[in-house]
Computed example of a mutant assay.
Amino acid sequence: MTPSFSICVYCGSRPGERPEFVQVAQAVGRWIGERGGQLVYGGGRTGLMGTVAEATRSAGGRVVGVIPKALVDKELANRQSDELHVVDTMHERKAMMGERADAFLALPGGIGTLEELFEIWTWRQLGYHDKPVGILNAGGYYDALLGFLAHSVREGFMGEWQMDLVRSDNDAPALLEALVEEAGRHPRGDKLAEVL
């Protein structure tokens, strides 16, 4: 069965300190699965990564994991994925995740999540793709980051047009719906394979 859409989710390999982070990861996975979608993610079984993957699979969605060899044991590679791709480098991982997705969503996470979010946002700014990017501000997790980004615009290091390339919301279903709808207006073909 061909999925109706494909969303790449960036999120923590840890569960975080608040139960609501796990709950939102479950809600995102269920939403994807119940609508016949596909999750593309970092391929681990731990933390929010494992939670969103299991929720997607349990709700009937497809799960595509992409993990570098160096993290297979550390993040406990999810062998229950419909597809599990073990790659050599982080660059390969991110390029494959980008190619396989129609849209991108950041849930709470640490330095890896932030790095992936900023890279895919930068790639959109540079014209390597025109796929929607979203930040799910669950429990206000990204309040400080969003405040800093607004500060960066005020200080003249970013433009409002760059901020317009990413959506943020604290309502998971509303944000997911908007990302999927916007993805449907853009062709799947892009230049992500040329980035590396």
Rank of each mutant, 00 (worst) to 15 (best):
A172R: 07
T51V: 15
H186E: 10
G42Q: 03
G50I: 11
H85M: 14
F5W: 11
L136A: 02
G110A: 02
F21P: 08
E194T: 12
R57C: 12
A174N: 08
V22G: 02
E194P: 05
H85L: 15
V24G: 00
E177L: 13
T46H: 01
D171I: 12
L76R: 14
V40R: 03
G33Q: 06
L114K: 04
A95N: 00
Y142S: 00
G134A: 00
E34M: 03
A101I: 00
K131A: 11
R14Y: 03
A55S: 13
M49A: 05
G50N: 05
L71N: 05
M163A: 14
R18D: 14
D169K: 04
E160P: 12
V72F: 06
V153G: 02
E181R: 15
T113S: 02
Y128H: 13
G33Y: 05
E83T: 15
S4F: 10
D82I: 12
V64L: 07
L107S: 00
R100D: 10
W31V: 07
V9I: 14
M163I: 15
T89R: 06
L192N: 08
V9D: 04
V64C: 02
V180I: 12
L39P: 11
C8P: 12
R62P: 05
V52H: 04
G36P: 11
G42P: 09
V28Y: 02
E83N: 10
D190S: 15
R93A: 01
K74Y: 08
E181H: 13
I7F: 03
E116S: 08
F104P: 09
R124H: 09
V86C: 11
Q23M: 09
G112P: 06
I135N: 01
S152P: 01
R14D: 09
G47T: 07
D169Q: 09
E54G: 09
F157N: 01
G37T: 14
G44Y: 01
T46R: 06
S168H: 15
R62Q: 13
R30L: 06
I120G: 03
C8G: 12
V195C: 05
A183P: 10
V28F: 04
H85F: 14
I7Q: 03
F21W: 13
L105N: 06
G60S: 08
A178F: 07
P108W: 10
T56R: 08
G42N: 02
E34V: 04
G127N: 11
L149K: 00
W161F: 14
G36R: 08
A150M: 03
H85W: 13
L105T: 11
S81T: 13
G42R: 02
G147R: 02
G134N: 00
G61F: 13
V66N: 01
G147D: 04
A183F: 11
P173R: 04
A55M: 09
T56H: 08
Y141I: 02
W31E: 08
Y128N: 07
I32L: 11
L84R: 07
L107P: 02
T89C: 10
Q23N: 13
N137W: 00
Y10P: 11
L175T: 06
P173H: 03
T51A: 10
E119Q: 14
